[in-house]
Design a protein around this nucleic acid. Structure first.
Length: 433
DNA sequence: TCGAATGATTTAGA
DNA sequence: TCTAAATCATTCGA
């Protein structure tokens, strides 16, 4: 028996033994081996193992020659396929437990968030929608374009870094996969490596890189959350209204002292003029009413100031009204007024003056601003007449519109006196912020 | 740095 | 749901 034949005979014995134990796929024993000469087989196996172990000690040429001899043996393909089968079996049993490709909920969450924030997916304004949503949630005005652009710029930076890193990881993953596949293909010529095994190796590599990608996504999400919270915090900070806005609000307040409850339309108009939200207008009036009522003396000067200011306008308005009625001119009263608050287009533009000095002006319709100015004029007159105790109540006219209990509504019924369409019930509260 | 001013929020009541 | 009232938190000017 030559050496190769002996090796293969012995290998056949190994495969059978191995097979019967591991896979239960025993082949019939070759001739001459009926299971009784176990000692001889063990000797053969020992020889083969020895040869394999010492193959590295041999010269390259010798080793190559032996390798070639093994590769060219007639039994080699059969042996190879049996080994492949064994590997496949053991591989599957290992794989079964760990290869359940159910989508990771955490990864899905991260993906969804990145998509919603505009970090992943197609670029569509870089999270401006998120910024707008945040703005809407805080009820803030839309005049924070600087903050918006700042937010967008930072988000864009995050997006850029994320995509660069993602690209790097993908590239590295592909390169590594190709490298490993080439290596395995090369090795598959000398040892049994099935395509499925290569596939499995590739999937392992992909899983490893996926976990790295998940870390990247997690870090990106954290960065976005931090950015967003900072953005929201910045918006939550209180900012004083502009002087112009305060002036407009004060003008309205003091010219409607008898009923400082702007209608929904008036609030919208004021909000527009002041570049603030309707909720902020409501807050402002809420604060103003309570603070005015609490300390009328303190606000006296301010009231006089606005009263005097609007009195001039009132005089002009009345004069214009008279002139218009005389000439039947369609010109709107007080049009082109000299800077005073003007709500010509608002809901309280016209109203019935029913309660002026206790008299009833049934059917008489004048501009709302005229009513306001009349209020103001009364206020000025009462001031100059030595009016001191607003809450004490001038029986004829309370300049502040406050009743004995310090309430506005009881003095005059706002909805009926000022405007049929406005009333205190229409004031918004922004506590939902 | 301190106190007043002021916008926002919370709570209770109608 | 809105308002009054109290309170908080921030801004602003001396």
């Amino acid at each position: 028996m030559d050496e190769q034949a002996r090796i293969m005979q012995a290998l056949g014995g190994v495969s059978l033994a191995g097979h019967s134990v591991q896979g239960g796929m025993a082949l019939p024993p070759p001739h001459g081996h009926d299971g009784t000469d176990g000692d001889g087989r063990k000797q053969d196996i020992g020889d083969i193992l020895h040869q394999i172990m010492t193959i590295t000690d041999q010269s390259l040429d010798e080793a190559q020659a032996k390798k070639h001899g093994l590769n060219c043996h007639r039994m080699k393909p059969a042996l190879f396929s049996v080994l492949c089968e064994i590997k496949e079996k053991t591989g599957l049993s290992i794989r079964g437990a760990q290869e359940e490709d159910s989508p990771d909920p955490q990864l899905m969450r991260l993906d969804n968030m990145l998509l919603a924030e505009g970090v992943s997916g197609p670029e569509k304004g870089g999270g401006s929608a998120a910024a707008a949503a945040a703005a809407a949630a805080t009820g803030s005005p839309t005049d924070n374009s600087i903050e918006h652009s700042d937010y967008r710029a930072k988000l864009s930076q995050i997006r850029q870094i994320y995509h660069t890193e993602l690209e790097k990881y993908e590239q590295a993953c592909n390169e590594f996969t190709t490298h490993v596949m080439n290596l395995l293909r090369e090795q598959s010529r000398t040892r049994p490596i099935s395509p499925k095994e290569i596939e499995r190796m590739v999937s392992i590599i992909h899983r490893k890189f996926s976990s790295i990608q998940m870390q990247l996504k997690q870090s990106t999400c954290e960065a976005v959350m931090i950015l967003r919270s900072r953005f929201l915090d910045a918006r939550r900070k209180r900012r004083n209204f502009s002087k112009q806005a305060t002036e407009i609000l004060n003008e309205y307040f003091y010219s409607h002292l008898s009923n400082p409850y702007p209608s929904e339309e008036a609030k919208e108009e004021l909000a527009k003029k002041c570049s603030i939200t309707v909720s902020q207008v409501s807050n402002w009036f809420g604060n103003k009413r309570i603070r005015y009522k609490k300390n009328i003396g303190k606000f006296q000067e301010e009231a006089n100031l606005y009263a005097a200011k609007t009195a001039v306008t009132a005089a002009h308005a009345v004069a214009a009204t008279v002139q218009n009625s005389q000439t039947n001119s369609p010109t709107t009263p007080n049009s082109g007024s000299s800077g005073s608050f003007n709500l010509l287009n608002s809901g309280d533009m016209f109203m019935s003056m029913q309660n002026l000095n206790g008299d009833s002006y049934q059917g008489a319709q004048v501009g709302a601003n005229v009513q306001s100015q009349v209020d103001t004029l009364r206020h000025v007159i009462s001031q100059t007449a030595g009016y001191n105790d607003a809450l004490g109540g001038n029986p004829m006219y309370s300049p502040h519109g406050l009743n004995g209990n310090g309430g506005w509504q009881d003095a005059t019924t706002p909805s009926s006196v000022i405007s049929p369409i406005e009333g205190p019930g229409s004031v918004h509260s922004d506590t939902s912020n």
